[in-house]
């Protein structure tokens, strides 16, 4: 059944889209990640880049080296393998532990979140920091993670008037989504905290911290701890905590 719902179509003359259906679903997103992995292993001639999204994979190619037809056949041959793998599931989860200082000047919308949700600040923090969120995809800004699985009790509409500038590291909630602004940017999410960790740092050997298919959990820290980590990050001595489960 899984294969029948897969749609392959051209996106211009230099890219091919593999569409697994218009859904946000962990099972589907795992297939996207798996197909990307298989295509990387195959090292096909002319394939330039892969762009995984929630439920689709964009395959960019060089039309001087390959064609849509050739790549479509390659992808079709890999599809049966995906449904087999989907049954087995993922063996380990890679979790990034991101320190977050909630409320105060670093999370100025926390009071309005209390009003909107009817929960206390402590409850909101507890709920937000409990979950290890799956990173469905990156996009919008460098290192911006689209996270799934925000508890419905702390979902809240975006601000009516977006802020013109949100500082890098801000942790926010917008509708059913939560995430971190990797660089200073305009935005309409409600800011509940901030992390000193840089999800994007062009001067770092690994500029992008997280990848699609990994997980992210927020670890509440005090403002004092926040400042200490911030200093470590600036000096390049901070070591990010990553665990496998």
């Amino acid at each position: 059944m899984a294969e029948e719902t897969v749609r392959i179509c051209p996106e211009g003359d230099r890219a091919l889209l593999v569409d697994f259906g218009n859904v946000i679903e962990e099972k589907t997103n795992r297939k996207v990640a798996r197909l990307a992995g298989l295509l990387r292993e195959r090292t096909l001639s002319g394939v330039r880049e892969l762009m995984p999204a929630f439920s689709s994979l964009l395959v960019l190619y060089d039309p001087a080296l390959t064609t849509y037809r050739v790549l479509k056949e390659e992808v079709e041959a890999l599809l049966p393998k995906l449904s087999q793998d989907a049954k087995e599931g993922e063996k380990t989860r890679r979790i990034h532990h991101i320190p977050c200082c909630y409320g105060g000047a670093l999370g100025e919308d926390l009071p309005s979140m209390e009003e909107l949700t009817g929960l206390t600040a402590e409850e909101i923090i507890r709920i937000h920091a409990k979950e290890a969120y799956r990173i469905y995809m990156l996009g919008f800004l460098p290192g911006f993670v689209y996270l799934g699985g925000l508890d419905s009790r702390i979902q809240a509409p975006r601000l009516a008037t977006p802020r013109t500038k949100i500082p890098a590291g801000s942790v926010g909630i917008g509708g059913a989504q939560t995430g971190v602004y990797p660089i200073a940017s305009p935005g309409g999410w409600r800011l509940i905290g901030r992390t000193p960790v840089r999800l994007y740092d062009p001067d770092r050997k690994e500029p992008i911290l997280c990848r699609a298919g990994e997980y992210l959990r927020f670890e509440p820290v005090t403002e004092e701890e926040y400042r200490a980590i911030e200093k470590d990050v600036e000096q390049g001595t901070y070591r990010e905590e990553v665990t496998g489960e």
Binding site: E11, A15, L17, I24, M51, A53, F54, S55, Y146
Partner: peptide, 11 residues
């Protein structure tokens, strides 16, 4: 509205 997916130069 669709669920976000990849864009190319020329979309």
């Amino acid at each position: 509205d669709i669920i976000s997916d990849g864009i190319v130069f020329g979309s």
